[in-house]
Design a binder for these strands. Structure first.
Lengths: 87, 87, 87, 87
DNA sequence: CTGCCATTTTACCGGC
DNA sequence: GCCGGTAAAATGGCAG
């Protein structure tokens, strides 16, 4: 009995190759980002600052989401606390 | 504030937005990868092993062998014997 | 605001601070681990392999063998032959 | 020539065991944290909220550090921009 | 080539 | 007891 018998090699291969193809696409985009940064640098901008700015803009958005989640949690929790105190 | 600053500001903004857009694209591809892995999992494949296989396929054969050898050296030095299958 | 809420708040604070203190301790130990690894690296050991060995030692032998077998199955199914050393 | 000859098994073992011991300590603290959380839960607190609160308190501290770093970067960058515009 | 930062992987925790 | 998501750790990549 072959060691391969317990899995469908063909199916596995399809999944693997699909992921690998997507990873290639991703790498291309990453390269593109690198190009843009290089161009910005050539135009005199400090890439370190740019990265920091990008990072902070991302964080700001995430914070909004975070705040909303906290609000939701508190809203639900209030119901619990009220029940709790009523008990 | 000088004209120069404003122009620089506009140009900077363009670079940053371009990068951010590319990062969005990248995130979408990453999500797609996640989907593929989830489907593979649903089809009964072990995603952890799949990831390992993908990593191995990316590595140069040379490095792969070297790393395996080093692992062997270390495990033997520690007296760790991993039970081998009789083929 | 009710007395109950204040009491709950104080109690909650106590729990949270206790957790935070424990997390500080944990971080210190983590730093210590980092130091040990750095020393090992300075002595010429490959820390990546060391980490892998530590992970392997944590795993049950049974699971370790199983995982290795699965990897073999997948690599064979994909026709990946990892060159074995002649001992 | 033995496969073990190229590394000092004794020294490696010492490093590994030291790390493992530290990891045991760390796990104990983690268990302790778990106990505290379980007790809080038993006292009626929502662990999800607690985690969120702990997380946000940590982030607040990290944000301060981040802000300072950004300030530093900007300070340095200003020098650059001034030079740039003078050029 | 070293340190730093982003990504990726692993481990954990709570819910079903 | 798995499973899904979330936080911690580790690896890899990039800039300097």
């Amino acid at each position: 009995m072959s060691i391969t018998s317990s899995v469908s090699g063909a199916e596995l291969r399809q999944f693997i190759e699909k992921v690998e193809n997507l990873e290639v696409e991703k790498a291309e985009i990453q390269d593109h980002i690198k190009d843009v940064m290089a161009e910005a640098k050539a135009r005199g901008f400090d890439t370190k600052i740019m990265r920091q700015v990008i990072r902070m803009r991302k964080m700001k958005q995430e914070d909004l989401v975070e705040q909303q989640e906290l609000l939701d949690i508190y809203t639900h929790a209030l119901g619990m606390v009220v029940e709790e105190e009523a008990a």
